[in-house]
């Protein structure tokens, strides 16, 4: 084998592998990218039921209730961004830091009826933790602006319900 053909082999195998990697990445991207959505966005443009999304917002105070189906605990609660609320059902153990009135991110799919089935609920192991998507979203909707100080205390979010539109007034003074 000449030097040229050997080099050709090397180049071909490199290109083949990188091409394969690129193809696999694109294919995986097209079906597996998870978009973050706020409840009002889900309400406006419901994603298809086979699409996994991250739904984030505040847990509506007083909305959490539990039922037991075939010995499996199912938690139902509402997530709101202050404009719309989505009912989430989650079969499993809620994280230790899950609280009503605090921020949460749920991973799952939107059912045809508009309800959300979560396969995972995230609340990090830190009392002050606010998922960055939720913080972004709250800022976008005018519920909280980092320029006016820290995220409001959990207690003040307890008054936040899906129908309340004036909540940004009291949160801004909190900063």
């Amino acid at each position: 084998m000449t030097r040229k053909t050997r080099r050709l082999w090397l180049v071909i195998s490199c290109l083949a592998c990188l091409g394969l990697a690129a193809g696999l990445t694109l294919r995986a991207f097209s079906s597996n990218i998870v978009f973050f959505m706020a409840p009002s966005q889900v309400r406006a443009h419901p994603p298809s039921p086979d699409r996994t999304i991250r739904l984030g917002g505040m847990v509506v105070a007083g909305s959490l209730h539990r039922i037991v189906v075939h010995n499996t605990p199912v938690n139902e609660f509402q997530i709101t961004d202050g404009q719309a609320a989505i009912t989430v059902s989650y079969a499993g153990i809620l994280p230790d830091l899950f609280r009503e009135g605090q921020s949460v991110v749920a991973l799952g799919t939107v059912e045809r009826g508009g309800a959300f089935t979560a396969s995972e609920v995230l609340a990090k192991h830190d009392e002050t933790y606010m998922p960055k998507e939720v913080a972004e979203e709250l800022r976008r909707t005018g519920k909280w602006d980092p320029r006016f100080g820290k995220a409001p205390d959990a207690a003040s979010w307890n008054t936040m319900t899906s129908s309340e539109d004036s909540s940004h007034k009291n949160t801004k003074t909190g900063g």
């Binding site: 592998c17 394969l20 990697a21 696999l24 990445t25 294919r27 995986a28 991207f29 079906s31 597996n32 990218i33 998870v34 978009f35 973050f36 996994t52 991250r54 991973l107 998507e133 972004e136």
Partner: peptide, 18 residues
């Protein structure tokens, strides 16, 4: 400005065949 994430399904689908 879009918030997206990729997780286990992406990495499984893209790395295992390699």
């Amino acid at each position: 400005g879009r918030t997206i994430s990729v997780g286990k399904p992406f990495f499984d689908a893209a790395t295992i065949p390699l």
